[in-house]
Amino acid sequence: MYKILFVVPMIAAALSLTPAYASGDAKCENTSGEWLSHEAIGAKAAELGYEVRKVETDDSCYEVYALDENGGRVEIYMHPVTGAVVKLETKS
């Protein structure tokens, strides 16, 4: 009985998360055009002065992990078609 009391919440907790991935607080709209490549997005971010570490596709946006000119950690959400910066997240 007690076993169930502990096991069930753990499984429930695990299951409740599965659909909750996603994140990406940024939304990119009108993404039906041709998407820029990861390399092109990385190059665009580099042009803006960032030291690009990684480019990921996050739902509708590209998410660029980079360092800014002060060496601070940033996540840049960029529009996949236009390459415009949609959102800049500075990590403390």
Partner: peptide, 10 residues
Amino acid sequence: MITTTFWGIK
């Protein structure tokens, strides 16, 4: 992962 050295390193 939250150090500048390893930030975004796969």
